[in-house]
Design a protein around this nucleic acid. Structure first.
Lengths: 82, 82
DNA sequence: GCCTGTTTTAAGTCAAACATAAAGTTTCTG
DNA sequence: CAGAAACTTTATGTTTGACTTAAAACAGGC
């Protein structure tokens, strides 16, 4: 899952508190923390939209991707080998 | 849900077929069509990553957001009134 | 009429987003 | 050091909806 969540950078840059953001976005601090540290596997657009609104930014500011040829192969963890 | 899916533009610009993309990304044509036309409410990063890989682009090229103050209010459809 | 490509509908599976609660850790402050 | 404030983690549970398959409908092209 090489989508990188870059929310953290935005939070740091804006100097806002995670708790405040959670409040404004309307999600739990727990969920925000999980998202922030890249521990979630997806996101609802409703949530993403609210984050963008609260931070006045765009999806591309919160999510990034670095090309990885392996992404197209869909290697199952069992099949992998060196 | 004001997250706009802009996949369509990328597909058009690159001139690739939806069926091919679906094949490369590893999702059904059905799901790709739904996503493409903005009929889904979220996305898994695994899928997003594969789309980015297949199209050699970034999340921000597939998703957009236009600020809407109402997004922060989370108005329930029942409560709303003018 | 047939073929190709896309969309839609329908029905189902199952992962996981998100909540809440509580405990644990880090960080700041005095 | 003690205490508080901010953040993270763990655990458990609910509910949503991504995603599948299958099939039909739709839109162009020959």
């Amino acid at each position: 899952m090489p989508i990188r969540v870059t929310l953290d950078e935005v939070i740091t840059r804006k100097g806002i508190k995670a708790r405040d953001l959670a409040g404004r976005v309307g999600i739990s601090e727990t969920q925000l923390s999980l998202f922030r540290s890249g521990k979630v596997k997806g996101i609802r657009f409703r949530t993403l939209a609210k984050m963008c609104a609260a931070l006045e930014c765009k999806p591309g500011d919160l999510l990034d991707y670095r090309f990885d040829a392996g992404d197209l192969a869909d290697v199952s963890p069992d099949d992998e080998q060196g």
